[in-house]
């Protein structure tokens, strides 16, 4: 296998891996109200880069699933949609965080062997 093929395959798998944790990352940042772009920047600053084409439709889906609440705010320089965790979203996030810890511990153990 050439180095390029290894790189390409790794990149594909890493993308898949990231896709699985994006929801957790997004929910974790929405205890406080944020608009899409500020959320994207905040995640980026913390090392989690999300393409806007993935983030915005995801936010809408999470809202449809009642995990988030949103409202258009007009008091800023231009209208912006702000998102925040709903009560239901907070409970789901708590459960997901616990599950994440379990998965992380298990995978760490698996990788150490």
């Amino acid at each position: 296998m050439s180095n390029d093929a290894i790189q390409e395959q790794t990149q594909n798998l890493v993308q898949e891996l990231r896709r699985g944790v994006i929801i957790l990352a997004v929910l974790s940042q929405l205890h406080e109200e944020q608009y899409g772009y500020s959320l994207m920047k905040s995640l980026e600053d913390q090392g989690m880069q999300i393409d806007q084409g993935t983030l915005y439709p995801l936010l809408r889906r999470l809202e449809e699933q009642k995990l988030l609440e949103s409202n258009w705010r007009m008091d800023t320089s231009r209208p912006r949609r702000y998102y925040i965790l709903s009560d239901f979203g907070r409970q789901v996030l708590e459960e997901m965080t616990l599950e994440w810890s379990r998965i992380k511990t298990t995978v760490d153990q698996l990788l150490e062997k």
């Binding site: 608009y35 899409g36 772009y37 920047k41 806007q52 915005y56 809408r60 258009w72 231009r78 209208p79 912006r80 949609r81």
Partner: peptide
């Protein structure tokens, strides 16, 4: 369904990105 709302959001995101 939601066409206008989605467009409004894309517009807002575009403007934020441009401003940045």
């Amino acid at each position: 369904r939601n066409r206008e709302d989605i467009l409004r959001e894309i517009h807002s995101v575009l403007m934020d990105t441009l401003e940045d």
